[in-house]
Structures are given as structure tokens and as C-alpha cells.
Nucleic acid binder design. Structure first.
Length: 870
RNA sequence: GGAGGCUUAGCUCAGCGGGAGAGCAUUCCCUUCACAGGGGAGGGGUCAAGGGUUCGAAUCCCCUAGCCUCCACCA
């Protein structure tokens, strides 16, 4: 007894153990120098936590491309790695310290904290590995990297120092976005704005010299302590006489000058504004212009400092309330308006971000961005976005770029390679530590996580060393990532790549969207609507999850997680499983793959192989365009409809044939077609296809080693009209029986005619198929009245008394005739159109002429029968 | 203020210049023969509204409406 698949498709047992074996056998290890390289690097997941369903989607797309390219004969490198994720990991470790030991990171030394952070990293890297395994990612673990491993430390230092020496990194006192909770600077991208309810306060600033009151509005009274002046527009008649005089700050009774600056919008508010250079980016610019002092009144944790006088030590918001009350008591509060305004929040801690004056490191972005923009114009050097529209997003952002604040007041990250001399204050920036470390103090800050992520496509390959991997696998071929990190990541990889490797980091970027819940909401912890991919895998299997994730959206578009669709994917796999069981139980014992012989194949065999060829062609084309939803549709309908519903059913007749040659030919076609099907599906569902492959007669040790299917030349140019007519006839007979209220099993007689009305005799096997699938018997010369129905490429005739329902038949035929007339009208409209004949492509014209001819003849047959019935 | 996306069958989505499609749901029929998480046959859509280009528009252009992102943001 030949071995078959288990009776039931059970994803657990199918997926068990396979991955470990694939890794062990080295199927995913790149390095075959006889082949052309193809590179994808995984977007390194943060070691903050587990992978979510968005990662599963992202990775599935990468893995599909990887497996497809590997089958096409590329030396495929799919490189794994993880990201240290500075601020998020630091927050997680901090939270754990609090939960487990009741302490914060500030109770530890830097070294002690880093030790804890590394423990966390190890733990989560382990979880991520297990999850990659579950997902089936064909990653080359021999090349795995981490954004803070030794090589990365070197790469990051090299980049920092080079940019510094080239004047593209500088240190400066600027207004930056300050997260008072994490107590670190943030880049502009790490701040999100949301409309919050708030208040606009109007205060009196009394002019000392004249005693009049200037009404000034602010949303942040707590910053008033360091107002450095009042600004009015130089041409504002209302205030011109006050310029040069002094106003009294109602918060602390300080006397501050009234100055003129064109920045002020006369129409806005009262036309006079307070200027607090240390707490607002626009005020800062004005402050620089006028040489104002720049005092800050806040500490780095969001409490007030000594400049706030009696409010020192108080939280900024508590201070706001108290201060407003005090000013009110002193009679200087004019009014309070309730407003809704947009307020910046930290993307990590979600607290209100404080525009804050502080000394930070910055990357001068303009020259770097311009270099990328120039190359986006060059077809040979540009990064190609899929879909193309994201190029616009990318370009517009680069065109309006501002300097990037890269220093973070954290411990977990790449330490800035700058040292300050203890005595002289001299600064030393170098890839090497100072030779006399006792005289220097290293900058306490670390770099923004994205500073190192930006080097990912090349630093993972050994850069800045000129390694073999770097030479071979760089630039990357395809980067797969979400539109949400085009600015954070894609843009930054682009300019670092240009500057340091004089190349683009990758040729293509495939952009996908966000995965949402069934109601279309973003998945979030607070809503608790997140989907754990591991749970889905447990329930439906990873093959079903992968098929769902890859074939249910178009590039760049968001997708909803719909459990019914995962189930549909499972059902599809189940169908494939059962079809495979059927094939296996119908192959002769001992049949080998090399026994496939197409010399004596039948008409139906030619038909399925022709359809298979079309499928291979379309799937290949769409894989190249990353149109996996198209591929999914194509494979789904080919497998389910063409192969299972038609071919397998039709083939049963031939498998029952007494003729050995017919049987053998059918077995060959079943084996060939199924093998190609599982090859085409392998990138999408590697586990179940491998299981089937190993049970079928096969040539390689694993489907991982197989190559992408070729077009089957043996059926090139075959005429498959006979089979198409037969299939259509079977459908039509079933339909007529149902319409006539007959049981499907009711026997009837039928005659097929081609489009010209010629009677088409059936071969023995075709007659057997007709019998088996439609319970209809071919009759060359049926007696009495004949019912006519049009089918693809001809008509069928059935003795009317067998259908027993003249009224039904007439109604049916009238409807049919109407449809045909409409089609004919459409077709004739087109063909009588001079413009169409003159301008349409020749093959379109020929196709339309053929259609018209067919419609006309079918209509004639239907009308003839209607005349008989009348 | 700027940029972009979506609007197609009850639901979720493909199609994006030449015959309106899929999955799920729904109606009717089917017990052996790979599969009842299955098989067979149906029903269901003026492709958001309006205008234009074209021989021909769900598909290209313009405009309107609704929903949704992203970027920028004046006290």
C-alpha cells in the first residue's frame, strides 16, 4: 500500500518540525556564488515585545518574495535582525524595575541599568526567534544582526564622525521637543499632534510709562516667568507709540521691553504678543534676532525651576492653575476662553511635549536630502516605490526637511562619540576613545534609534568594512515596509546610503498599509482589539494566515482582519489537501516523477495543461509586480474550479478506462499539474505544500530545492475548443435539469453541435465524461422535438419530452435570446464603428468579430427553437 | 493651509479603457465513489452624484459630496 496523506488536513501536524529541518539543512543560507544574488533585509523588529499581526503581514510579503526568487534560481539572502529601540525598550525596562523592585532606572548606575536592558533584549530576541520560526520566514540566521552589536557600534561611530567632520553634524542650543516624562529630547517625527480642549488666557501687561494695559493672550501661562519682551508689529498704529517702552509682566512683575518685529500678525488676537524664547520655537527665532536673554523656567521633568520664584518645584500644570488664580486676584486676568487646539504629545509616553531650549546634537539635513532628491530623478539610481504614489510623499517630505535632533537623554543606545576636556572644555569627536581618558568626559547622551536603523541595509552586510557580503548583496533588491515609517526609516536609509555608499540602499520599496480590526479600527492596546498572530496560527495554521495576509490587499492599502477570510484560506488549503489525496490514491505504486509522459494525453489533459500554462504565466507576471491579491485569485480559481471541479472529475472517466495508455497519461497529467500547483503555492503556504510534495513522487529532498515551474511546451498551441464545449455542455445540461425540476440523476439524451450547427460526435472518453458528470447520453439522431440551448462554442439539443416543460423552456430561451441580442447589439455597435476599426488593436478587432459571429449563430439556433415551440 | 487614499452585490474587498467579479452571507437541490469545513444550480449591483475626453468609461480628466490618513500649524 502506497503512503497517502492523512485523512484529514491538520495544520498542527503538517507544520510540526518542518522549519527546524529546513534551517538545519541550510536551505535558507545564502552564498551560492554560481547564482545571481537577491537581497531582502528584514525590517528589524524592536526588542520591546512580541511580534504583532502587522509584523506577520510584513514578513509574509518578504518571505513570499524570498521563496519565489529562490525558486527562480537566485542566491537569495533574507537577512534577519532586531532593533534595540532606545526609548521604548528603556521605558519597558524601567517599568519592569518599578513593578518588580519598586525602583526606577535613576536608582541604578548606567552600567547596572544596561545590564538589565541586555537581559530584556536577550529574552525578547528569543521570543522573536520563535515567532519567526512559526511564521516560516526563510531567514539566513548565519547573518543575523542587532542594531547595537559590535559591527554596528563601529558603523555608527564611523557615520557620526564622518558627518561631524564634514560639517553635517553639529551641536547647538535649540528649541527641541522635550518629553518631560522620559526626560529626553525627541525629533519632530516623534511628536504627534492632537486636538485637545484647552484655554486661552488673556492678561494685562501694564505699560510702565503710560499706565495703559496691553492685553496679551497665551495658552501656556506657566512660561510667562521668562517672557523676555512684548512684540508688536512695527507698523501697527495702535502700538507704535509703545515701542521702546516697558511692560510689567503680571506673573512676576518683571519689567520687560516692548519691541517691534514683523513676525507679529496684526490681525491675530490683540496684535501684541509676549515672547518667551526658551519655550517656543518662533519666539526663539525672534529672540535670536533681537539678542534677547533666553532663560528657561522649567526643569527637565516638567516642574518649575528657580526662575518661577515661589512656584519652583511645582508641576507645570499645577503651576498654571495657581498662577492664573494669583493674577486674577491681582486684577490682571482679562478673560479665559475655552478652546480646542492642537497639542503635541510624545509618541512614546503620550505626555504633553514641552518646546524646550536645550543643547543637542543635530544632523544638517538639507544637503543630504538634496542628494537623494537629485538621484530620484535618475532612472538608473532612483528608489522605485510600489505603488508609485508614495514617491510623492517621500519627495515632498525631503523637500521640506528640517534638521534632525539626534541626541537622546537615555542610556540604552549608541553613546555619542564626543568627549569634553575636563580642564579646557575642548571637544574631541573621534571613532577612537581618547588616549588619555582620565582627562576627558564622554557626552552622556545616546543617539536616536533611527540613527542606527538608517544604516541597516548596508551595515548588516559588514559595512564600513569592504566585506564579501557587502560587495555581493548590496544594494538590496527589495525593501518591504509600511507607509507609516517612510519618513522615520526609508528616507533616512536613503540619505545615509547615498552619502556613505554612493548608491541607493535598495532598488524597490514595496509599501504595505496597516492592518485593522474587523470594524476598520486601528489595533491598539487600549482598545484591546489586537490580534495575536500566534493565536491565529494555532487556530488556522500559518499557511492559512499567510495566504490571508498576502492575498487580501493591494499594495499600499490598509487591510482588515476578517476571521472568515482566514477560514476561507483554510478551506482552500483543505481543498488542495483533498485533491492531493485523490491524486495520490490514483497513482500507480512505484510511479516516479520521471515517469511523467505526455505523448498520449487526451483532449481534457491538453485543456488542463493549457490552463495551467496560462496560470503559470499570470502568476509569474503578478509576482514580479508584487500583486499578490491577483496571484491569490488566479491560483484559487485555477485550483478549485479548473483543477478540482472540472479536471479531476473529468479525469475520473479516464482513470476508469480499460486502456492502460489512457490511464497512464491521466496519471502523468495529474502528477504534473498538482506538482506545478504546489510549486506555485509554495511561497504562500510553504508547510502544506512541502507535506504534499514529499508524499508525491518527487525529485528533490524538499520543495525548498525545487525551481519555479516552466511553461509546458507539449501543449503549446493546442486547440482546447472541444473540451471547453464539453464543459459548457455539462453545465448547461445541469442547469436545464434544475430549471425543468428534474433530479440531477435523471437521465436524458443530448447532441452537441459546433458554432456552425455541425453535429460534433464525442469520443469514447468524452461520452463517458458526459455520462458521469451530467447523466446524459450522447445521441446522434434524437427523435421528436428538440430543445436547443447555446453553450460555449456551439449549441446542444435535447429531446423536448425529456425536459417535459415547454413553458419553462420557452421562458428560458426568451431570456437567452434577449441576452444574445444585447451582446450582439453591443458587438455590432463596436464593429460598425469606423473609429473602432481604425483605432483599435488588430487582435481586439479579431476577437470582437469572432464574438459577433458566435453570438449571431447561437441566436439563430435559439430563435429557430423558439419558432418550433410557438 | 498642503498632500494622498477610499466610495463596486447584504458584509469585506479585487478589477482600473472594450462581455460587472471573488470570499462570506442568502435561495433551491444532492447520503456510498478525494473533500458535507463538500458537490450542483440560482438570486442579488443604474460600479457615490454631475460634467467632460473617447468609436467605446466602473476604469482617464474635471467638479461635488461623504468617510479616512499623513504633513504643516500664529501668540
Amino acid at each position: 500500500m502506497k503512503e497517502n496523506l492523512a485523512q484529514k488536513y491538520d495544520h498542527h501536524s503538517v507544520e510540526e518540525g518542518k522549519y527546524a529541518e529546513w534551517v538545519e539543512k541550510g536551505y535558507f543560507t545564502a552564498g551560492d556564488l554560481t547564482k545571481k544574488p537577491y537581497t531582502i533585509v528584514i525590517p528589524p523588529p524592536n526588542v520591546t515585545g512580541m511580534l504583532h499581526i502587522g509584523h506577520a503581514w510584513d514578513n509574509t510579503l518578504q518571505d513570499i518574495i524570498s521563496r519565489y526568487k529562490r525558486m527562480q534560481g537566485y542566491d537569495m539572502l533574507y537577512l534577519p535582525g532586531t532593533d534595540h529601540a532606545g526609548i521604548s525598550t528603556e521605558a519597558k525596562v524601567d517599568a519592569r524595575l518599578r513593578a518588580e523592585q519598586g525602583i526606577s532606572r535613576r536608582d541604578l548606575t548606567r552600567e547596572q541599568f544596561l545590564e538589565k536592558a541586555y537581559e530584556w533584549k536577550e529574552e525578547y530576541a528569543g521570543i522573536i526567534h520563535k515567532q519567526w520560526e512559526k511564521l516560516g520566514n526563510s531567514l539566513d540566521y548565519s547573518r543575523e544582526r542587532f542594531t547595537m552589536d559590535e559591527g554596528f557600534v563601529k558603523a555608527v561611530r564611523h557615520v557620526f564622525v564622518s558627518l561631524y567632520n564634514d560639517g553635517l553634524i553639529y551641536r547647538g542650543k535649540r528649541i527641541i521637543n522635550w518629553d518631560p516624562e522620559a526626560r529626553t529630547a525627541l525629533s519632530n517625527l516623534e511628536v504627534y499632534y492632537q486636538d485637545d480642549p484647552g484655554q486661552m488666557f488673556y492678561f494685562n501687561y501694564r505699560v510702565k510709562e503710560t499706565g495703559e494695559d496691553l492685553i496679551i493672550a497665551t495658552t501656556r501661562p506657566e512660561t510667562m516667568f521668562t517672557d523676555e519682551c512684548i512684540i508688536v508689529h512695527p507698523e501697527d498704529e495702535r502700538y507704535r507709540h509703545l515701542v521702546g517702552r516697558t511692560a510689567v509682566n503680571p506673573a512676576n512683575h518683571e519689567e520687560i521691553p516692548i519691541l517691534a518685529d514683523e513676525y507679529v500678525d496684526r490681525e491675530f488676537g490683540t496684535g501684541a504678543m509676549k515672547c518667551t524664547p526658551a519655550h517656543d520655537p518662533n519666539d526663539f527665532i525672534i529672540g535670536e534676532r533681537h539678542g534677547l536673554p533666553m532663560r528657561s523656567c522649567m526643569n527637565d521633568n516638567g516642574t518649575m525651576n528657580e526662575n518661577a520664584g515661589v512656584y519652583a518645584g511645582m508641576d507645570r500644570f499645577a503651576c498654571r492653575d495657581r498662577l492664573v488664580e494669583t493674577i486674577r486676584a491681582e486684577g490682571n486676568l482679562v478673560r479665559i476662553e475655552n478652546i480646542v487646539h492642537s497639542v503635541g504629545h510624545s509618541e512614546r509616553t503620550h505626555c504633553v511635549v514641552e518646546p524646550y531650549l536645550s543643547e543637542q546634537w543635530f544632523v544638517r539635513m538639507k544637503p543630504l536630502a538634496e542628494d537623494v532628491l537629485a538621484h530620484q530623478e535618475d532612472p538608473e539610481q532612483r528608489i522605485v516605490f510600489w505603488p508609485e504614489r508614495f514617491n510623492k510623499t517621500f519627495v515632498q517630505w525631503l523637500e521640506n526637511i528640517e534638521d534632525w535632533c539626534i541626541s537622546r537623554q537615555l542610556w540604552w543606545g549608541h553613546r555619542i562619540p564626543a568627549w569634553y576636556h575636563k580642564e579646557t572644555g575642548e571637544i574631541y569627536v573621534s571613532e577612537q576613545d581618547p588616549a588619555d581618558p582620565e582627562n576627558w568626559i564622554q557626552d552622556e547622551d545616546v543617539l536616536d534609534t533611527w540613527f542606527s536603523s538608517a544604516l541597516w541595509p548596508f551595515a548588516t552586510l559588514g559595512w564600513p568594512e569592504d566585506t564579501e557580503d557587502y560587495k555581493r548583496y548590496y544594494p538590496n533588491d527589495t525593501m518591504v515596509t509600511g507607509y507609516d515609517i517612510i519618513f522615520f526609516w526609508v528616507a533616512r536609509m536613503a540619505f545615509d546610503a547615498r552619502y556613505f555608499t554612493h548608491n541607493r540602499p535598495f532598488h524597490h520599496v514595496l509599501i504595505h498599509g496597516l492592518i485593522r480590526d474587523a470594524q476598520g479600527r486601528k489595533m491598539s492596546k487600549s482598545l484591546g482589539n489586537g490580534i495575536d498572530p500566534m493565536q491565529v496560527i494555532d487556530e488556522y495554521g500559518v499557511d492559512a494566515l499567510r495566504f490571508f495576509l498576502s492575498t487580501n490587499s493591494t499594495p499600499g492599502q490598509d487591510m482588515r482582519y476578517i476571521p472568515e477570510k482566514v477560514e476561507a484560506a483554510w478551506n482552500f488549503i483543505n481543498k488542495l489537501w483533498n485533491a492531493s489525496r485523490f491524486v495520490l490514491m490514483n497513482l500507480d505504486d512505484g510511479m516516479k516523477y520521471s515517469d511523467i509522459d505526455l505523448t498520449d494525453i487526451s483532449e481534457v489533459d491538453k485543456w488542463i495543461l493549457t490552463r495551467l500554462n496560462q496560470t503559470i504565466e499570470h502568476v509569474t507576471d503578478n509576482n514580479e509586480k508584487y500583486e499578490f491579491a491577483q496571484v491569490g485569485n488566479e491560483l484559487y480559481s485555477f485550483v478549485w474550479d479548473d483543477f478540482c471541479s472540472w479536471y479531476v472529475e473529468l479525469a475520473k472517466a479516464n482513470l476508469g478506462s480499460a486502456d492502460e495508455k489512457v490511464r497512464k497519461a491521466t496519471q502523468s497529467v495529474l502528477l504534473l499539474a498538482l506538482t506545478d500547483i504546489i510549486k506555485l503555492l509554495f511561497p504562500f503556504m510553504p508547510f502544506v505544500t512541502e507535506e504534499i510534495y514529499l508524499k508525491l513522487p518527487h525529485e528533490k529532498d524538499s520543495l525548498n530545492l525545487e525551481s519555479w515551474p516552466d511553461i509546458i511546451e507539449a501543449v503549446h498551441g493546442c486547440d482546447i475548443a472541444d473540451t471547453e464545449r464539453l464543459i459548457s455542455a455539462i453545465s448547461k445540461i445541469r442547469e436545464l435539469k434544475a430549471a425543468a425540476g428534474l433530479k440531477p440523476s435523471a437521465r436524458i439524451h443530448v447532441r452537441l453541435r459546433d458554432i456552425d450547427g455541425n453535429i460534433k460526435p464525442l469520443s469514447t472518453d468524452q461520452a463517458a465524461m458526459l455520462e458521469r458528470m451530467a447523466r446524459a447520453e450522447w445521441q446522434a439522431d434524437p427523435e421528436g422535438d428538440l430543445t436547443v440551448a447555446s453553450i460555449n462554442g456551439g449549441t446542444i439539443q435535447i429531446p423536448s419530452h425529456e425536459l417535459q416543460n415547454k413553458e419553462e423552456e420557452t421562458a428560458k430561451l426568451m431570456k437567452e435570446a434577449e441576452r444574445l441580442r444585447k451582446e450582439l447589439q453591443r458587438s455590432e455597435g463596436i464593429l460598425n464603428n469606423k473609429g473602432f476599426l481604425a483605432k483599435a488593436p488588430a487582435d481586439k478587432i479579431a476577437l470582437e468579430q469572432k464574438k459577433q459571429e458566435d453570438y449571431r449563430k447561437q441566436l439563430e439556433a435559439v430563435e429557430a427553437r423558439l419558432a418550433e415551440l410557438a
